[in-house]
Design a protein around this nucleic acid. Structure first.
Length: 470
RNA sequence: GUCCCUAUCGUCUAGAGGCCUAGGACAAUACCCUUUCACGGUAUGAACCGGGGUUCGAAUCCCCGUGGGGACGCCA
């Protein structure tokens, strides 16, 4: 494969106008995996030429999101605003070579032009009125209107490329207009910077969102005008929200960091994203190491995919079940601390976490489940009335006596509960549930013997005292 | 409006002309396990957008239609 011989270089190039959302995260994941898969380099580039909308907070949010996901870049982050000198140099060269020209059309004129074209049901585009042609008389440049620089796009022929996910795509040059590459204030625009950067950074594979398909022919023409090689392109279709609607800042698009807040494990989010629009036969559950070995651009779906929170939840639960209890205890501890609960003088948090990791769907639920172990429970009046009845309390008293000198091991403790129930003429649930309410303030819990063992004799006895009124 | 992309169970998808009476996963339903609640296990229902071609044969190729999406900025 020639692909193995060349040094694969991919990039993720977000604009810092908001948080890193799920669609961006998947684009980053695929670019990262492709570079990793081929032993290449993954570059992070911040496209901040829109000075009005870019913010340092957004840059940080993107960096945080990438870090949380564990998508490390090999080069960068590069900031376009720091590459101004280079862009201006290229623009000057193009002006010199005649592949770009000054255009003095005002915004008002452009608006009028667009309105006319729309009225005629045509595709709105610049009409080339300032485009120099042999034998064409250009109007006199109006004074006081700083010109923009436009790219001189070929008039006819077609631009085509073999998109690595969508197959061959062709555009007639007649559909394209002479787009602005530098604003009146001299700052370069997106389509221009991308081309210069991708070229300078020797990007071999441009993996990006579907919404850039229409920019690609312009960028290819620009690349040709610059005498630069054209990279491979892979356009990823978009991700729709859970409701099938497209994601936008005001509808459904959430920061990847929100998944952290909601108790998702990064490996679950990553695994979910990997399977959203890409597949490896029937494989569903796999870690990043495996993903990198399998990943290719041939098995990416060309159509849009709908986000499915339920499947993400299932993967999250799956990863929770096999996560290291110490890590889970730390994560739950972080969350409990926010509620003012410390793990300090409670039972072994790792053991508690181990008791619950296969019963909860996310870290917040885990924290909730662990909560009663670390702060005294307060059974509601309803629960008390329902379960802490006269016969149940008698049973609990008997149980307490037994617990005082019973060996503190799950098997023994389970036996103790069974025997006490039998002696008190109670069925197992008739004693086990009141016991749960007494210890945890809840009628449900993991196996009662395991709960007892983890909680420890002292804590069990004192909690029993509380309900027995001793 | 113009251009571009796209179309398999509710959802994510397998499928690259015969292996498909279309497979897997999530979700759903039922049952089992069980000291509670979960977990887990087993089973069931559920799809090739429509119409034309091409071919001995089409979910797979082509065309048209329809649905969905994207783009049409001195945003990225």
């Amino acid at each position: 494969m020639p692909r193995l011989a060349m040094n694969i270089r991919t990039r993720f190039a977000p604009s810092p106008t908001g948080f890193l959302h799920i669609g961006g995260a998947r684009t980053a994941l695929f670019s990262w995996a492709f570079a990793r898969r081929h032993g290449g380099s993954f570059i992070l580039r911040i496209e901040d030429t829109d000075v009005a909308r870019s913010t340092p907070e957004a840059v940080q949010a993107i960096l945080d999101g990438m870090q949380w996901l564990g998508l490390a870049h090999d080069e960068g982050p590069f900031y376009q605003m720091q590459r101004m000198a280079r862009y201006k140099e290229v623009i000057a060269g193009m002006l010199e070579a005649g592949t770009a020209y000054h255009c003095h059309t005002s915004r008002e004129e452009l608006d009028a032009l667009r309105a006319e074209q729309e009225a005629r049901k045509e595709k709105p585009r610049y009409d080339g009125r300032w485009r120099p042609e042999p034998g064409k008389a250009l109007p006199a440049a109006p004074a006081g209107v700083p010109p923009v620089v436009r790219f001189r796009n070929p008039l006819d022929g077609v631009v085509a490329w073999d998109d690595l996910v969508k197959g061959r795509i062709e555009f007639a040059n007649a559909e394209l207009d002479d787009f602005v590459i530098a604003r009146a204030d001299g700052t370069p625009t997106y389509n221009f910077c991308v081309v210069v950067d991708d070229h300078d950074m020797k990007i071999t594979h441009v993996i990006r969102g579907d919404d850039h398909v229409n920019n690609t022919p312009r960028q290819i023409n620009l690349l040709r005008a610059l005498g630069a090689p054209v990279p491979e392109y892979a356009h990823l279709s978009m991700i729709l929200g859970d409701d099938g609607q497209k994601l936008s800042k005001r509808h459904g698009a959430v920061s990847v960091m929100q998944y952290d807040d909601e108790g998702y494990l990064p490996e679950a989010v990553l695994n979910y994203l990997a399977r959203l629009g890409w597949s490896h036969g029937d494989d569903e559950v796999f870690g990043m190491e495996q993903f990198v070995q399998w990943f290719d651009l041939d098995h990416i779906t060309a159509s849009a995919a709908q986000f499915n929170t339920e499947k993400l939840n299932w993967l999250n639960a799956h990863y929770l079940k096999q996560a290291d209890p110490r890590r889970l205890a730390a994560e739950a501890g972080r969350r409990l601390a926010r509620q003012g609960v410390t793990l300090g003088d409670g039972p072994d948090a790792s053991r508690v976490a181990a008791l619950y990791r296969d019963r909860v769907g996310n870290l917040n639920e885990l924290a909730d489940a662990m909560h009663p172990y670390f702060s005294p429970p307060k059974p509601s009046a309803e629960l008390a009335a329902q379960h802490l009845t006269e016969p149940a309390l008698k049973g609990l008293a008997a149980l307490k006596a037994r617990f005082e000198h019973c060996a503190w091991l799950a098997a023994e403790l389970g036996q103790a509960v069974k025997q006490t129930a039998a002696e008190a003429g109670l069925k197992m649930p008739q004693l086990a549930i009141p016991l749960r309410v007494a210890l945890l303030g809840l009628p449900q819990s993991p196996s009662i013997d395991a709960v007892l063992e983890v909680m420890g004799r002292e804590r069990v006895l004192s909690r029993l005292d509380r309900v027995l009124g001793a």
